[in-house]
Each structure stands twice: as C-alpha cells, then as structure tokens.
Amino acid sequence: MKFTIRVNGVEHTREVEPRLLLSDFLRHEIGLTGTHVGCEHGVCGACTILWDGAPVRSCLAFAVQAEGHEIRTVEGLAPGPGQLNPLQQAFRDAHGLQCGYCTPGILMTMTAFLEENPKPDEAQVREALSGNLCRCTGYQHIVDAVLLASQA
C-alpha cells in the first residue's frame, strides 16, 4: 500500500507491505542505516527512534502506522554534514562508545531524556539507560557522556 512518512523533516512516499517494520523501512526503503537492528523484539533498544518526540522501538511498529507522525532518527541529530551535536560530541569526548552498534538507539533515548531532565544525576541517567543494551559493557563511559552533555 502507498503511504507517506515524515522522517527528520523530510517526506517520503513509498509503496510497501503493511507488515514492513518501521526499522526495516528506515534502513531499506529510505537508506537511513543509522537506525540499527539488534533483537527485533523490543529488548535491546538499538532501533530506538523518536516518534512525535518520544523514544520508541522502531522494530515494534509497522511503517504504515507512522503516517501523520513526526519520526526522528540519529541522522537528524547533527546540525550539518561532518558536525556533531552536543550529545554526540560528549559521546566522542567521554569515549561513550566502543563498537558503536548500540549508540544510535542510546543517542535517541538520551535526546528525549535530556529534553525532559536537563540536569540529571547519575542514578537518573542509569535508569533512563536501562532500556538500551550495550554488549561492549561500556555503560560507565556512556553515563559519563550523558552527564558531560548535561553540563554543556
């Protein structure tokens, strides 16, 4: 079926099957491969995107359901090509990633978290991070990065 979706402020119209997951649509139909796919059942958080500003799992929604909603992916964070936004810069400065697979999902989770909690403490950051798995066990540096971003 034909539908139109708005991602990072840009409209895309495609003909897709209703069963196409939003995560697969983002990656395979419009080439936004920054959204990573880990577990495909809502546990790992790698595919987290912002849906009308709120972080959600893109593997647990069908692309056609997103019509009429504002979708934001990791590609929508940086102010311009070759640039990083303050949260991304903090991840770089605090070594908040190793392999980077979980990073896009964590950036989207933390983007929404910091909008609501601009000055979080460490415990709040850890709780907000609980829905995103990092298998490099890099949580300490991820927490450091989010706290660093909140001090900017």
């Binding site: 958080g45 849906w51 972080p55 959600v56 799992r57 647990l60 929604a61 989770t109 907000a128 829905g131």
Partner: peptide, 9 residues
C-alpha cells in the same frame, strides 16, 4: 513495567 521506550507505546 518494561522501559520508558515500551511505555511510550
């Protein structure tokens, strides 16, 4: 109940 990302939907 689960995580904020799940409770958002």
């Amino acid at each position: 109940v689960a995580h904020p990302q799940i409770r958002n939907r």
